[in-house]
């Protein structure tokens, strides 16, 4: 059973890394495209980070079955 809890952990690692990289780049470089006045890197980075943290918590919690 252990290794399949690991998948949740693996997904959380990937998304936390992506959230941090994307969010930091967004905060530092403030990139934008001509048609979009929104720092999408920063905001989507935060979304990825939150998603990763949710999976991290889920992987640390005891399995329900």
């Amino acid at each position: 059973m252990n290794r399949f809890l690991d998948l949740r952990f693996m997904i959380s690692v990937l998304f936390i890394v992506y959230g941090v990289v994307l969010g930091l780049y967004g905060a530092v470089a403030d990139p934008h495209t001509p048609s979009l006045h929104l720092n999408i890197d920063l905001w989507w980075g935060v979304v990825c980070l939150v998603f990763g943290i949710v999976f991290l918590i889920a992987s640390l919690a005891k399995p329900s079955e």
Partner: peptide, 11 residues
């Protein structure tokens, strides 16, 4: 190409 800046493009 229209909406994604560097960063999101990579994703």
């Amino acid at each position: 190409a229209k909406y994604y800046p560097p960063g999101m493009l990579g994703l």
